[in-house]
Design a protein around this nucleic acid. Structure first.
Lengths: 355, 355
DNA sequence: CGATTCGATCGAATCGATTCGACCCTCCGT
DNA sequence: ACGGAGGGTCGAATCGATTCGATCGAATCG
């Protein structure tokens, strides 16, 4: 510690050129005679100089080469969510060519992690909000206020932010239609967290109106537009165990037990299947279970979930492209990706009332 | 674009104080009268100043608040590897309190992503090499040369780097002992990639000696110290499909088909089980399959893999603590975490020679 | 009451590179 | 042979904040 790092000035001095020339020799931005260039490079090697200091360079150029990805506002461990992971996968892929690094940030202030203030102090060229955020997210305001361009995946929809989302309503409507067509009319819904406060359990009117995430709202709306008002139970996180717990609550509705449960994610749906089987119900014979996302669900063995498939990796890629555009100075249009229904082996007509 | 961001100097001017005072008011580093402080904060609000510029701040303080995590040198998609994910999980957790951000980097130059040169130009306070790297990794040299402290998870073991690893040899030896005790003597091994070149298939002597990763080498050595020379097949990545493919090669050894296959990871082991069942073999009755890592393997249904459990999330946490220490200026000692054997339901005595 | 601290504030140097504009020299065209 | 066009190099300003040491008044102490 303590000793001075060798600086470009030192290299320049040693090579007998001006600092500006040395800089050009390294960055290759201007015309430099090959001989000079070599002299600078040699001097650098002799002094153990490994290239310009990234922080100084960032300051001057106004670019850090880093893109922030805010994930998991609603997740305790974002890495455990296959959807988030697949999205990052695509994002990293599309960001590759631009050479940008991906800085992971948790938008959840409750969780351990950098505080919003700390996040605000990180040198970002752009930021991606993945499945986060009401319009009032303070982090979002920070970024926008600072002039950091933002891509919001699945909301919020603000004029100062580029939005990429999927056809949540359409997909859910198609799914609900499928369930209705099978003959179900008593359905329950397991929702993703409606806002970031760790609450779970039955969703009442107040809670419904407090929903912070557009996708949850739309998915639920599509179901109710098909079936009329339904009983909804909220999960505290997108985890299998949460799905189990929520399903438990739903299946306890003794008088009017649902014959179909619509989960807002595949992970939750897996939990629902588990809970149903633990309660002695067969899926799909006794209970229809459907999800949303279209991820792999090895937990179900050979069975395939009936679900709405969204192009998650592609979503990540498109996000990456949008970021690249923003970095290049052009603001891309908002994009909505299509989804489609996949009928698997977890949905069937309801059991006959009196066997 | 183009318009000047408002600067601390502007705020200071507006508040009628010197720039230094304004800086102190924001950072809270020095004694500032409450009234002055308020005046500065008000001025900032009026001008829409959201806090000091991160890049300028980084330069002056010599800290960016960012920790780089180099993962996936041997993985096409690191996110698909549960081990890498769990490690990151623990790392993010332990890094939380320090407020450091986690910058994901791929060490694989073959893959799209930031090039080593680009990585070298990112402002990092410290770097973590997760399951990467021969001693000759150029990135590692970059970091060390630049004075960026490095924690290497599972190697390489260099004096200028802090090392955290697990008892690969001991664990594998215990595992091999277990298999031997069951009565097996014809065993095959499916190895992780031995170096980063996408090769797969039978491992000959030359290849064995070219092994770049200490953990692979140790795990294989432990097996051979128990059984004597064994047939080993290398997978090109830590993926289920690769395990299947490798197992295929191993099970084709018509004369001396192994009665047990030792895979160097659980993911590979799952692939081996799949391949075995596809070939009409029952596990563990006809073939014993064991792994390494101790991750969840929902693909196997109720069965539990016999494997060596390593504390992956804990490994991440320890890594995080080591990084925090390094950031604080003290160099922690190298650490080796213990592992232990878990006997599951995929290992059993070999089938009788003539049924 | 004079000397000493302590708190608050300020000026100026500093972090390390990038880049704009000026300058010189050579080479080309006519 | 002369004007112009660049290629190559340099000096100096700049990016925006942090921090060290100095200054000045007021409060404390003996």
């Amino acid at each position: 510690m303590g000793e001075h790092r060798t600086t470009l000035a030192a290299v320049a001095a040693r090579a007998g050129v001006s600092q500006s020339t040395a800089s050009l020799a390294f960055s290759g931005q201007g015309p430099v005679a090959e001989a000079t260039r070599q002299r600078v490079l040699d001097a650098a090697r002799e002094l153990g100089y490994l290239g310009p200091d990234p922080m100084a360079s960032s300051l001057r150029r106004g670019r850090s080469g880093i893109v922030g990805a805010v994930i998991g506002e609603r997740l305790l461990y974002a890495f455990r969510d296959p959807v988030a992971v697949a999205l990052l996968d695509g994002l990293a892929d599309a960001l590759g060519p631009s050479g940008a690094g991906l800085l992971l940030l948790s938008g959840d202030a409750h969780r351990s992690g950098p505080t919003p203030e700390q996040v605000a102090r990180m040198p970002l060229d752009a930021a991606v909000f993945a499945t986060c955020g009401g319009d009032d997210d303070p982090l979002l305001d920070q970024f926008v206020g600072r002039g950091v361009p933002v891509v919001a995946v699945d909301g919020p929809d603000r004029p100062d932010v580029v939005l990429l989302d999927i056809d949540d309503y359409g997909g859910s409507a198609e799914l609900a239609r499928h369930v209705a067509d099978l003959g179900h009319y008593r359905v329950g819904v397991v929702t993703l967290p409606l806002r970031l406060d760790g609450r779970r359990g039955h969703v009442d009117t107040a809670r419904r109106e407090a929903t912070a995430y557009a996708d949850c709202r739309l998915r639920l709306a599509a179901v109710e537009d098909t079936f009329g008002p339904v009983v909804a139970v909220e999960a505290a996180a997108n985890l299998i165990e949460e799905g189990e717990q929520a399903a438990g609550a739903l299946l306890d509705e003794s008088p009017d037990k649902p014959t179909a449960i619509i989960a807002q994610s595949d992970l939750l749906a897996v939990g629902v299947v588990r809970a149903a089987e633990a309660a002695g119900l067969r899926v799909p014979d006794d209970l229809t279970v459907v999800g949303f996302d279209g991820i792999d669900t090895p937990w179900l063995g050979e069975r395939r979930l009936t679900t709405v498939i969204q192009p998650i990796v592609e979503k990540g890629r498109v996000t990456g492209r949008m970021v690249t555009d923003l970095l290049g100075g052009t603001r891309p249009d908002n994009v909505r990706l299509p989804v489609h229904l996949r009928v698997g082996s977890t949905s069937a007509p309801p059991p006959a009332p009196f066997p």
